[in-house]
Design a protein around this nucleic acid. Structure first.
Lengths: 228, 228
DNA sequence: GTCCTGGGTTCTGTATACAGAATGTCGATG
DNA sequence: CATCGACATTCTGTATACAGAACCCAGGAC
C-alpha cells in the first residue's frame, strides 16, 4: 500500500474537502498559481486535481474567468435529488435482491437504537452520519455494480455539501432515522419493491426538509471576492 | 470560439474514439510515453486526457500495470443497463412533464418514417443513429438537469462501445425504432408514466438482444498484446 | 463624456528535465 | 534445474521553464 500519497491526490482531497465544507464558497475563483502555492504543490499535480474536481462537478469552467467553485442553488439541489431518486431507488431495489441479509439485519438493530446516538452530545452528529455511511457502503457492496457505485459516490459528495448548508434539527434526524430503518428492514426482508418505495419516501421527506429550511434561512451565499 | 483546440482535448477525443471504436481493445496498456509520441502531444496534456478517460470509466488503473483500457464483459454490460434503467426512466418521465411538445411531435413523425432510413444503403446506420442522437439531445434539453445529463452522457459513451460489439440486424433496428416511437409519443402526449414504462420496455428488449447476440457470437475479445 | 487603442501584466497551456519507484532480466548459487 | 538477488532499464510523478493568449488599465481621440 502506498504510504506516500501522491501530491495530486492530496491536492484533490484537500480542495474537495474545502469545497464540501463551504470553506471555499461557490463562485470562488481557483487560480492555478494561487492554489498551487497555497497547497504547497506544483502546478502539474494541481491541474490534475482540478480536472478531477471538474469531472465531479464541484468545479466549473466559467468561460474566460477560469475555474470557479460550482454554484449550489436550490434549483441545483432539486436537480441532484432528481438523479438521486432514480439511482437510490434502483440501488435499494438491487440491494434487496442481492444483499447479504445478515449485514442488513445488523444495521436494522443499529438504526432501531439510533436515538441513543442522537442523544449524545455530538453537534456534528458524527456517530449518526457514520451509521448512514455504513448503510451506503453496505448497499454499494450488495449492489456490486461499479457504474452505479461511481454515480452514487459523486452524488453523495454533492449531498454532503448540501448537508452543510444548515444544521439538521433533531426532529428531522429522528424522522430520517425511522425512514432509514424502514429501508433497511425492506432490504433485510428481500422486499425489493418496498425498499424502492421506502427510498422514495425518504428522499421526498429529505427534500421537503431542505426546502423548508431554505425558506426559513434564505441567505447563505456570500461570495469570497466581495467588496474591498 | 476556439478555432485551435487544446492538445489535451485532441488527445482525449482521439483516445476516446479509439477505445469506443474498439481500435484500442480492452486490456491494452496505455503507456504515457508511447501514447504521447503516437498522438504527437507531450506527456502533460496526455495525462490530462487519461485522467478524463479514467473519470469516464473507459480507462482503469490496473494496480502496478499502469493504465489499461477498461474491460467490457457481458457482466459489465448488465451493470451499465442497471444504471440505464434508472436514469433513462427518470429522464423520460421528466421530459414528458417538461418537454416542448412540438419538438417531440416532430420526432414522432420522423420515427414513424424510420423504415425509409433503414432501407437506404447505409451499413453504419448513420441516419438512424443520428435520429436517436437527436432524441437524446431533445430529452436532455427537456429535462434541463445538468447532473442527469452528465450521468447520461457517460453512459451513452459506454453504450456506443457496446453497440460496436456486433452489427445490429435490421429486424432489431426496426423493432427498436417502434419502441422509440412509443417513447416519443408518450413524451409528446405528456404522459410521464407511459414514457417511463415504454423506456423500460425498450431497455429490456435492447438488453435481450445483446444477450442473444452474445450467445451467438461468443468470441469478441482479442488482446492487443498476444502471442509473438 | 464615451469609446477605442495600446501596452503591460497575469494567466493558462505545453514541453521538458529530473528523481524515485517498479519491473524484468541475467547471472550466480544452492 | 530452480530460486534468489542485484543491476539496468523503463515508467510514473513532480517541478519548472517558456510561449501564446486574455485581461486590465490608462491615455488619447472624437
Amino acid at each position: 500500500m502506498a504510504v506516500t500519497q501522491r501530491a495530486s491526490d492530496r491536492a484533490y482531497q484537500r480542495l474537495r474537502n474545502e469545497i464540501v465544507e463551504w470553506e471555499l464558497r461557490p463562485g470562488s475563483v481557483l487560480g492555478e498559481v494561487e492554489q498551487s502555492t497555497r497547497l504547497g504543490v506544483s502546478r502539474t499535480p494541481l491541474r490534475e486535481a482540478l480536472a478531477r474536481l471538474m469531472a465531479d462537478g464541484l468545479v466549473t469552467s466559467q468561460s474566460g474567468r477560469g475555474l470557479v467553485v460550482t454554484d449550489l442553488s436550490l434549483a441545483s439541489i432539486l436537480e441532484i435529488f432528481e438523479v438521486r431518486q432514480a439511482l437510490e431507488e434502483q440501488a435499494a431495489r438491487l440491494a434487496a435482491r442481492r444483499g447479504d441479509t445478515a449485514v442488513f439485519q445488523q444495521l436494522e438493530i443499529e438504526f432501531a437504537a439510533v436515538n441513543d446516538l442522537l442523544e449524545h452530545d455530538d453537534p456534528a452528529r458524527h456517530a449518526y452520519y457514520g451509521l448512514v455511511a455504513r448503510l451506503d457502503d453496505a448497499i454499494d457492496a450488495a449492489v456490486d455494480n461499479a457504474y452505479l457505485t461511481a454515480a452514487l459516490a459523486i452524488l453523495r459528495t454533492h449531498l454532503v455539501r448540501v448537508r452543510r448548508l444548515a444544521v439538521d434539527d433533531p426532529a428531522r434526524l429522528s424522522a430520517a432515522a425511522a425512514e432509514h430503518l424502514l429501508i433497511v428492514q425492506a432490504i433485510a426482508a428481500r422486499d425489493a419493491e418496498l425498499a424502492a418505495h421506502a427510498t422514495q419516501v425518504h428522499l421526498h421527506q429529505a427534500l421537503r426538509n431542505i426546502q423548508k429550511m431554505a425558506v426559513e434561512v434564505p441567505s447563505m451565499p456570500t461570495p469570497t471576492k466581495g467588496l474591498p
